[in-house]
Design a protein around this nucleic acid. Structure first.
Lengths: 339, 339
DNA sequence: CCTCCCTGCGCAAACGTCTTCATAAAGTTT
DNA sequence: AAACTTTATGAAGACGTTTGCGCAGGGAGG
């Protein structure tokens, strides 16, 4: 079966501790014996037992990842990037999906402690039960459990990594204006979530800079379950908007599809923009103009922060805000304008 | 800090072993002491140390999941279902993405053993290096490492769970014929991968049953990177096909998008069908007629098989084939025909 | 009443690794 | 050459569980 340190020790005629030291590059050991031990370890095809190691070291080299959703391709992309970053950092990752369900979220927060992960990456989504969620975070903080909140906004005191939604929407609307759009419809679900508030600010700032008056009639309620109704409302606005700035790529695609089924062309008849930049959609050849929230940067930054926190559980909390990036494709009508 | 069995033992004035037995529902212990111990454990907020437990038991209650891709929403859906099934079975899951890269795949296969997971779910994708992949599987088999191959076809001797692609395509084409389609274009990348071979059989069987002659001109080469060219070829076929039976939903969407950008309507001008049934697309309101390969059933079956294998490492290999299910939506033109 | 068996529990070893302390040998300083 | 210091290694305990063995006490069967 599997070889242990003791097996090596016997063959090398040394003590366990010597083998352990040789394997761990402890300097207090002679080059000669080190080489001898390493050679034998190699011949025996020895691999250390991480369980035993964890028991002694009280570190598992494993972090938890708590996601609220995964079927949305943006989050899968993020998951992929996180996994790769973990791999580069020699960390294992154990996964917990809460699926927006409060009870599972509670269960997972418990599991984080029980399963002995060294720390965790946790996503905050505006739709989950905010009070319970915050309360659970407080518990983690109390027990000094290292974690960082992904997409966490400023209202929570803990390690956070998030994006500057304000600036993203600003860049986007500024671009739309620059290619001739003035009537920019901005449907959103609710103004409660912080990202939406920030986007609204960005939208207004861009308008103001171009001396376009803000028209509240262009801000309408929308929801993935009521796409036809939303499109109805939009088409009734007078004058008709020339572009719909969707709150995310998914909504953008749903609008696109609904317009298409009515024979309205995108972007010729009405333009559409998204937010997040879901790679899968570009893969499927949908040239959506959007604002990229880089999953690569997000994972890089959050893991860096998390490892820092694991290293030093008493560190000051940090907030990292990543700047988004405008991605101009065809759905905004940019190519039409340039002709 | 964290409480141990010893802490409980002291307070209860019993030995460690008694506490352990009480906690593990060992029958050789009186109801009285059991209750006393459980009460104290509860008061102390005791949670067992899984690391120590694993060290003793040589079981980690953790399984590895090796995925080749995750950004494709079908696989994310599968991942979600697997995670949920794992949760119900009290198993942790550690994740490895190989991203179709051979070196990472090799690294992960090594890690599976080193990281002390009890077993693994491994996906086989036709695009990875088949020889190396098979070789690595043989190694796992040699060391009696429990694993099941997801989407594994019959050519490999190991535990497999896969779908009956043959029957899926057959159901689909039979339906297409039933609503009046006769000219069914069937573009595919290559006839090498087993699923494609099976689909081809299903396609032919359905035609034969309706006495429609097989027309090789309708079988064309296709590739996600050459969508416009594929559509060009399809539109040149005479008589023009009334429907494109794509090899998967992703290809279907790419065709859809390309046709749309040329002003060709789906399904009015040409119908489209997919394969797999990616939930995300339905979510985005694309009413794609497709063949559902249920991720729920897949995860259920594969985990059941894996746990069985972990329980008994010497078991006979099993092959499980899941029947797919036809999902009729609008893209095949069914609704048009019925009018 | 003696043996036998069952119940309930304690003792101690074990899982594989790391680490503190001790010690012997070798090298350095005075 | 005595008194240190440094270097290389060994011995043993610890991390938190689980478990085989043993033993005391009590009930049952002969």
């Amino acid at each position: 079966m599997h070889k242990t340190i003791e097996d090596i020790a016997k063959l090398a005629n040394v003590n366990n501790s010597t083998v352990s030291r040789a394997l761990n590059n402890n300097p207090r050991i002679s080059e000669e014996t080190r080489r001898k031990i390493l050679k034998i370890a190699d011949e025996l095809n020895y691999t250390p037992n991480n369980i035993a190691r964890s028991l002694k070291n009280k570190k598992t080299q494993t972090v938890g990842l708590v996601l609220h959703t995964i079927t949305n391709p943006y989050w899968s992309e993020l998951l992929k990037d996180i996994e790769e970053t973990m791999y580069r950092n020699n960390q294992d990752m154990i996964l917990f999906f809460s699926g927006h369900k409060d009870d599972r979220e509670a269960a997972y927060m418990e599991l984080l402690m029980k399963r002995k992960v060294d720390g965790a990456l946790i996503t905050l989504m505006p739709t989950s039960h905010p009070e319970n969620f915050i309360e659970r975070l407080e518990k983690l903080k109390e027990s000094k459990f290292p974690f960082v909140l992904i997409f966490g906004d400023a209202n929570i005191s803990c390690n956070c990594v998030s994006f500057n939604h304000f600036w993203g929407e600003y860049l986007l609307v500024r671009h739309l204006i620059s290619i001739g759009h003035k009537n920019i419809c901005f449907p959103l679900g609710s103004l409660e979530p912080v990202p939406n508030v920030q986007k609204m600010e960005g939208y207004k700032k861009a308008l103001a800079e171009s001396n376009i008056e803000f028209n509240p009639g262009l801000i309408i309620r929308s929801d993935l379950s009521k796409i036809p109704e939303t499109i109805d409302s939009i088409l009734k606005i007078n004058p008709r908007p020339t572009v719909i700035s969707a709150v995310d790529d998914n909504m953008a695609m749903a609008y696109w599809r609904e317009l298409n089924s009515r024979g309205i062309r995108v972007p010729e008849d009405i333009a559409i923009t998204g937010f997040y930049d879901i790679k899968y959609l570009a893969h499927m050849k949908f040239p959506l103009t959007t604002v990229k929230l880089s999953t690569a940067t997000l994972s890089e930054e959050s893991i860096k922060l998390l490892l820092e926190n694991i290293e030093n559980p008493d560190m000051q909390y940090k907030k990292i805000v990543i700047e988004p990036e405008l991605v101009i494709r065809e759905s905004c009508g940019a190519k039409l304008v340039n002709k």
